[in-house]
């Protein structure tokens, strides 16, 4: 009995040690910030576009007589911890507040004072979402998720105005950091959570089992931007698309961590989201999901590409040598 107890204790010690070492390496290995800079540009661009579009109907969505009146939203958010700066903006100042937010998103996009603008961009994006909760969809959820992790990580350390200023002042560029790695890992794990629950929640729907779920998406006239009704004559194709979507979403969180399978999983992401963009017109959602997936690209590879790009630009900038006979 004593030997068994000692064996169990030894096993538990080994297990705990292995878990800690794996966890430690996963979260706390310094990583290059270059890819984070690219993710900031893509997310900042999407935040800027998404919120610029609100500006086309600012009063309709944020004014006192908006679609969702302030009293209705307060009713929806009773006993909630949702906050929004829009509650304190008087109607005449709606445009000014909106313009300031667009400026913040633009500064975040170019990576100016990123430590501050990333937090302000996050707070602004959350405020817009909490003011008009019934007009949101997946795009807004991913926008905010990415903004959060880009505010946590040093997203202004590379490919940014901050990095440019640092270089002009003769300071060394910021290199790999634990914070950059943590930001990648947070985005990656969150993407896994999103796809996994998107997949398993579909298992409650009979049409995902019968194979016709994709038809139901294509047959929705209000979603449709590309006529896919020709698929009615090819039900086996609908079945295959339904099953592929389900398997891909559920298995993403496992297969994407395997370096050999990752390219295939990411190609699957491009195919799935390009389909959503093309057939359902949800290009913004499709693009922001792919930005999240881009966090799985190897930062080392991005660094190598960045170095090649810099070398190419410098070679083109070099004065041409004319050889005279």
């Amino acid at each position: 009995m004593g030997a068994l107890a000692r064996a169990i204790m030894a096993y538990l010690r080994r297990l705990a040690s292995w878990l800690w070492q794996s966890w430690d390496a996963f979260w706390f290995t310094p990583e290059s910030p270059t890819l984070l800079g690219l993710l900031r540009i893509a997310t900042g661009g999407m935040l800027l576009y998404t919120h610029a579009v609100w500006g086309l109907r600012l009063k309709d969505f944020f004014g006192p007589q908006s679609w969702l009146s302030p009293s209705l939203v307060r009713g929806l958010q009773a006993n909630s911890y949702a906050y929004s700066f829009w509650w304190v903006v008087p109607e005449p100042a709606l445009g000014v507040a909106h313009a300031i937010c667009l400026l913040i998103f633009a500064l975040f996009l170019i990576g100016f004072a990123t430590r501050i603008t990333s937090i302000l961009a996050l707070a602004a994006a959350i405020s817009y979402a909490h003011r008009t909760p019934a007009s949101l969809f997946g795009l807004d959820q991913i926008n905010i998720m990415l903004a959060l992790y880009l505010a946590v990580g040093p997203s202004g350390d590379a490919i940014s105005f901050d990095a440019f200023l640092r270089k002009r002042r003769g300071r060394a560029p910021r290199g790999p950091s634990v914070a950059a790695n943590a930001a990648y890992r947070l985005i990656q794990t969150h993407m896994c959570v999103i796809y996994f629950f998107a997949g398993i929640s579909k298992l409650q729907g009979p049409s995902w089992w019968s194979g016709e779920a994709m038809w139901l998406a294509f047959a929705n006239r209000e979603y449709q931007t590309l006529d896919m009704t020709w698929l009615a004559w090819h039900p086996w194709l609908i079945d295959a698309m339904t099953l592929t979507t389900l398997v891909w979403e559920i298995s993403f969180c496992v297969l994407v961590w395997k370096p050999l399978l990752r390219p295939l999983v990411l190609v699957g992401a491009v195919a799935l989201h390009a389909g959503i963009g093309l057939c359902l017109g949800m290009w913004t959602f499709a693009i922001i999901m792919l930005v999240g997936c881009a966090s799985f690209l190897p930062p080392g590879l991005i660094d190598a590409w960045a170095l090649k790009a810099v070398a190419w630009v410098r070679a083109r900038e070099a004065p041409h040598v004319v050889v005279r006979a």
Partner: peptide, 8 residues
């Protein structure tokens, strides 16, 4: 994250 779930 229940996109198109339980079904469209």
């Amino acid at each position: 994250y229940h996109f198109f779930a339980p079904e469209p």
